[in-house]
């Protein structure tokens, strides 16, 4: 028996919104420690990794490890029907060929129940090597979203360059060019709005804006996002998910292969 109940059901809604257009089908791995998912986008340029700790749920029971393969677009479509204040419960028997989703609006006496068919997916798991990144940038997630959106009006790819004087995001296209320079913020009185930049070694790397715009759909999950970069390895864009007490309950990490000289 598997059962996971999330009072802040909007977290599940937001996670699905953040991955459904990037990954069409994927398997959730459920164990006593929580639920996780790893999948590449259809063109195999990026990888998304989601983790939700068992502690992050208001009720969590997993009697034995389960792999729940499903169409994420269908799941997202159903979960979209849940209200932002709804409690969401995911249930599956041990030999499940479907899962049950239960939505309970707060302060109401209704229960909405949906069943979703499961799929057998032969998804391969990719090993992500431990990396000491040369550059780590933490910035407000809405700022990152805006940088990606605005620069994609000009060009298809962004060049991120980080050196002692700050970080620059630049693009060029037929219209012309654009760039945004970010400096570390001085005060820490508004941690959500802070920009912090740690540079071990300067880097210059280019990435497709199309994917970064996809990743930015996770903006509602966290006020801050981190970008980790090293020469000639995939960029990591991480949104850490917190509960009401600000404890970490999970994350979405997106990995994006760089564009390199042909």
């Amino acid at each position: 028996m598997f059962e996971a109940r999330m009072v802040r059901g909007f977290i599940i809604k937001r996670i699905l919104e953040a991955i459904k257009d990037l990954v069409s089908e994927a398997s959730w791995d459920c164990s006593t420690s929580g639920m996780s998912l790893q999948a590449m986008d259809t063109s195999h340029v990026s990888l998304v990794s989601v983790s939700l700790k068992a502690d992050g749920f208001d009720k969590y029971r997993c009697d034995r490890n389960l792999t729940l393969g499903m169409n994420l677009a269908s799941l997202a479509q159903i979960v979209k029907a849940a209200g932002n204040d709804d409690v969401i419960t995911i249930k599956a028997p041990d030999d499940a060929d479907k899962i049950t989703l239960i939505f309970e609006p707060k302060s109401e006496t209704e229960t909405w129940e949906y069943e979703i068919k499961l799929m057998n997916l032969d998804s391969e798991y990719l090993g992500i090597p431990e990396t000491d990144y040369s550059v780590k940038i933490n910035l407000p997630s809405h700022k990152f979203q805006r940088i990606c959106r605005d620069l994609s009006q000009i060009g298809d790819s962004v060049t991120i360059s980080a050196a002692k004087d700050g970080v620059r995001f630049s693009t060029t296209g037929d219209l012309g060019s654009g760039n945004v320079k970010l400096n570390q913020t001085a005060s820490a009185d508004k941690p959500d709005e802070a920009v912090t930049i740690k540079i071990e070694e300067p880097i210059i790397l280019s990435f497709a804006l199309k994917y970064l715009n996809h990743f930015a759909r996770a903006t509602a999950l966290s006020p801050q996002v981190s970008l980790s970069l090293s020469k000639d390895v995939p960029l990591v864009v991480e949104y850490v998910i917190h509960d009401d007490d600000d404890d970490e309950i999970g994350y979405i990490r997106y990995y994006l292969a760089p564009k390199i000289e042909e």
Binding site: H44, S46, E124, L126, P129
Partner: peptide, 14 residues
């Protein structure tokens, strides 16, 4: 000219 490479160039199946 820069070209896009696959994520599988970096991460291998386990």
């Amino acid at each position: 000219k820069k070209g896009q490479v696959s994520i599988t160039n970096f991460f291998k199946p386990t």
